[in-house]
Each structure stands twice: as C-alpha cells, then as structure tokens.
C-alpha cells in the first residue's frame, strides 16, 4: 500500500458567522499517528468535520497526497479519508456485519484486510450477527474503528474515542490503532480531550488554541496551565 499524506494549510472555518478555525496548519504522514489536543470547544471536532466536508471551509486548503480534497463527505470518503465520528455513528438497527459492509463501500479492498482487522479485533468477528445497538460502548467503538479501516483508507480520522470507554477498552483501542496504522501505512489523526493518552501513543501532538494548531511537546508549563 502506498501511503499518502494529509495536509491542512492555513485552514479557516466559520460556523454561523463564528470563527472557529483560523489559520490551522498540520500534516499527517503515511503510517503516522498524530494527536490533536485542545479543550472543550476549541474546534477539534470542527477540524475533522472540515476535513471530511461535513462543515464548509471558508479558507485554506486540505490536500491528500498533494491533491485538493473536495468538500463533500462521500467524495472525501471515496478519496481515501475515513472518519470515525464522535459518538461512533453506529447504525444501531443494523447488525455489526452490515455496519462493516457499509464501511467497505469506499474502496474495493480485498478480503484480506478485513481478516487482518478481525484478527486484531476478535470481538467484532464474534458479534457479527448482533444488532450493533445492543453492544457496549467499547464494543461499538471497535466496530466503528473496523468500519473506518475496512476500506483500506489512506488517512483515518478518529474523534473523541475516549468518551464513554473504560480505561482498559481505551488502551486496547489506541494500541490497535497504533499497530494497524503502522503496519498498513495508514496515517491516523486522533482528536481527544485525553491529552495523556495522546502524548503517550502519538508520534506528534498538536495543541489547538485560538483556532490554530501548534506542535506540543507534552511537557511544557504552558500546556499544563492550559489544561488546568
């Protein structure tokens, strides 16, 4: 698999006239896992939604492998950027297997990727015939991650996966992401309030503040005062 980098350059986003993102620049290389930290309301989710076209961009560029990404969710997905949204976005009335079948639409990935993912997330394979709405939060997060990965994307966006997960489930999830991203050459951008998790597992962490992203070394006094 040839990886491609995701590049945000000088991104601006307004929502109902309010300037949320003002000149954000960051990049995610193939096989990298990159964190985006920031407090509640800083614009983390908005950044991901702007990448995948769920909210409009008012300025700047979003590129994948050097080519501009269109601002329509389905075309972004088909171009190889997979978005696991906040709240997981599981279709509760469908089975786990059907949820994952939907995820395979974006690319005609062969079945071997699915088998590797099932080996990494055995619970997902075991629960294939269950209604997804009946699973626990941790299990649903696993389904959402497999569904996001099964198309063999170049970039995976993951929004607030720590919400509602037990520390153990979260550790399993993030370790799986690190491993799969590295071995498949998928660049992963993780947005989370849990900055400890991000600084532990990510190759690089950006801090989102005043609509901009700055690289965060994870130890500075500025950041500890920032997070309070």
């Amino acid at each position: 698999m040839t990886g491609e980098a995701l590049q945000l350059e000088d991104l601006y986003v307004k929502i109902s006239g309010a300037r949320i993102i003002e000149g954000l620049t960051l990049h995610v290389g193939p096989g990298e896992i990159v964190g985006l930290a920031g407090r509640n309301g800083a614009g983390k989710t908005t950044t991901l939604r702007a990448i995948s076209g769920l909210v409009g961009r008012t300025g700047g560029a979003v590129r994948l492998g050097g080519r501009a990404l269109p601002a329509q969710p389905e075309r972004v997905a088909l171009a190889g950027v997979s978005h696991v949204p906040e709240g997981r976005g599981i279709f509760g009335d469908l089975t786990v297997g059907e949820n994952i079948r939907l995820g395979r639409r974006a690319a005609q990935a062969d079945g071997s990727l699915l088998r590797r993912l099932e080996a990494r997330f055995p619970a997902v394979e075991r629960l294939r015939h269950e209604k997804a709405g009946r699973l626990s939060g941790g299990e649903q997060q696993m389904v959402a991650l497999v569904r996001g990965l099964v198309s063999g994307p170049k970039i995976l966006l993951v929004d607030e996966m720590s919400l509602g997960l037990s520390p153990r489930a979260l550790t399993t999830a993030i370790e799986s992401l690190v491993e799969i991203g590295g071995s498949e050459g998928i660049g992963v951008l993780v947005v989370d309030q849990n900055s400890t998790m991000l600084s532990t597992y990510c190759d690089r962490v950006y801090l989102l503040r005043d609509g901009r992203a700055e690289v965060w070394d994870g130890s500075g006094a500025a950041s500890s005062s920032y997070f309070g």
Binding site: Q72, E74, G89, G92, L102, R105, A106, R147
Partner: peptide
C-alpha cells in the same frame, strides 16, 4: 437512519 454518517462512509 443517519444520512451524514452514511455520507462519511462514501454512500
């Protein structure tokens, strides 16, 4: 059931 999520999956 959820059009935005479906679009994120490339529908």
């Amino acid at each position: 059931q959820n059009a935005p999520i479906a679009r994120l999956l490339g529908v």
